[in-house]
Amino acid sequence: MDTIVFGLILAAAIIIVLNEKRWIIVTSWVVATVAAFVLFIHHVTTALPLNF
């Protein structure tokens, strides 16, 4: 999954550098960001024994 997310970030980077349409750029960036966050959520498995 990590490789796929890096692939999405790389695709977003190339689109941002080469493309000029704002909605395509923002969409590719949002897709990559959501994918990275979902991966992070997957790794958050337990509530920490901390009090705030």
Binding site: A13, I25, W29, A36, L39, F40, H43
Partner: peptide
């Protein structure tokens, strides 16, 4: 570790703003 990797991803995502 997996969390270190996600932080690298976030650094790249943040950098894409200035790249744009």
């Amino acid at each position: 570790c997996p969390l270190c990797i996600t932080q690298r991803m976030a650094m790249m995502l943040a950098s894409l703003g200035p790249v744009y």
